[in-house]
């Protein structure tokens, strides 16, 4: 009896997962109504070169369209938050009429520290996941009566590790049928012949998978290349 129940639950879960995976999708994901003229954007700043590329990409967007903006930063990565604030400040000067001051910075614990032992990784990764779930799933439900309560319409990711945890949190929303952001992953310009670990993990999960070197798509897997973007 219990075994049958488990099998049925498992099959239903697998079917649900199959439906929400972008590979099998024929319809556009559920995003905000296209009648409104702005989209809420969230972007993960993965420190160092990841942050530099992410902000270079973000700087190309029309901030009056993509507003408000949420910068997601790993705990202790002060440099990335300074750079995000600097970009916002420079936009406020160059485009004084667009939606300024319309950004927030979210801090999430690192899934795994740089020299962290493999043994202590599971608890820290779990804490990281729970924080992401809070921001992506729980907070929007708790504050659903306020306008702009959703996490974001668009989530831009470019690695490293912690961005996979964010993606998992988004999938919990997808699984539950809650509104989810479109996911765009951009592989670093530094990756020429081999995808990064986060690239390989996120490739089947994101709505748009972009690489900057065409060699990376020679395996005929999913993804697109528009040449250099940074």
């Amino acid at each position: 009896m219990i075994a049958t129940f488990t099998v049925v639950v498992f099959l239903l879960a697998a079917f649900r997962l199959y439906i929400i995976l972008p590979l099998s999708r024929t319809l556009k994901p559920r995003t905000a109504s296209h009648s409104i003229s702005t989209r809420r954007l969230a972007i993960f700043l993965g420190s160092g070169g990841h942050t530099a590329e992410a902000l270079a990409l973000l700087s190309t967007l029309d901030f009056s369209r993509y507003t408000p903006r949420t910068y997601i930063i790993s705990e202790g990565d002060i440099l990335s938050s300074q750079k995000a604030v600097a970009l916002e400040a420079s936009r406020a000067i160059s485009h004084p009429k667009s939606n300024n001051d319309n950004f927030t910075i979210l801090i999430i614990p690192r899934a795994r520290g740089v020299h962290q032992s493999i043994l202590t990784t599971p608890p820290t990764a779990l804490l990281s996941l729970l924080t992401c779930i809070y921001y992506v799933t729980v907070a929007p439900i708790l504050y659903s009566n306020e306008s702009n309560s959703d996490f974001a319409d668009l989530l831009i990711l470019n690695g490293p590790g912690t961005c996979f945890v964010l993606c998992l949190a988004v999938y919990i929303n997808k699984f539950a049928g809650l509104r989810t952001p479109s996911l765009i992953y951009i592989e670093s310009f530094a990756r020429v012949k081999k995808l990064s670990l986060s690239g390989r993990l996120l490739r089947p999960l994101v709505d748009k998978f972009i690489v900057q070197w065409p060699q990376l798509l020679q395996d005929r897997g999913r993804g697109e290349c528009h040449g250099l973007l940074v």
């Binding site: 967007l61 765009i184 250099l228 973007l229």
Partner: peptide, 19 residues
């Protein structure tokens, strides 16, 4: 080396987001 061309990424995102 090709100069920074921001219009490419902006177009990709605008397209994905229905603009």
């Amino acid at each position: 080396f090709p100069p920074f061309d921001g219009s490419k990424f902006a177009r990709i995102v605008d397209e994905e987001m229905g603009f």
